[in-house]
């Protein structure tokens, strides 16, 4: 496992094998084999694009749902988390410390759709004690990538 390689992929999964090789000092063959090894082992779970959906007319909406759950003997929160994550509407599920138990990020076409999903699917689930829905209104930064504002380089164009 090469941490440098992981950091680079984390920053930009579309670097070519050649670029990764040059930047890490590994041979191209090593880059290829290490990446596929990490994929096989499940260390790397996938690659995705970060998209500014707001630029589209058919923008998606997302909400963060705070789920309070009654933990079950032996399995704790695992079972309910397993159930929640199966819904295609559910993008993210985290077990949380603090005021609630599961953080669920849900996406849908409209606020209505997301709200209905919560009301009809999540809230009535056995052992779910309560839900609180927080809609995401604006995304400034996601996965280290800024979605709003241009980071202008305010340095001189040339200096000694």
């Amino acid at each position: 496992m090469n941490v440098k390689l992981l950091k680079l992929l984390c920053k930009n999964a579309r670097y070519t094998v050649h670029e990764l090789s040059v930047m890490t000092g590994l041979s191209e063959d090593d880059v290829k084999s290490q990446v596929s090894e990490m994929e096989k082992e499940g260390l790397i779970r996938g690659y995705k694009a970060v998209i500014d959906w707001e630029r589209l007319d058919s923008a998606m909406v997302s909400a963060i749902i705070e789920l309070k759950v009654e933990p079950q003997p032996d399995v704790g929160f695992e079972q309910i988390a397993e159930q929640v994550k199966k819904y295609p509407e559910v993008e993210t599920v985290y077990l949380m410390s603090g005021g609630y138990d599961l953080c669920v990020i849900v996406k849908g076409k409209t606020f209505q759709e997301v709200a209905m999903f919560v009301a009809k699917q999540l809230a009535p689930m056995k052992y779910v004690v309560s839900t609180a829905t927080h809609f995401i209104l604006r995304r400034y930064k996601e996965l280290d990538i800024e979605l709003i504002g241009d980071n202008k380089d305010d340095r001189e164009k040339i200096s000694f």
Binding site: D153, R155, E156, K157, I158, S159, F160
Partner: peptide, 21 residues
């Protein structure tokens, strides 16, 4: 002189600075 030209040009991709980004 060359610096001044570069400074006034739009859309310049610079590798010209001596300071960190």
């Amino acid at each position: 002189k060359f610096f001044d030209i570069a400074a006034e040009m739009d859309d310049v991709i610079s590798l010209g600075v001596g300071e960190p980004d």
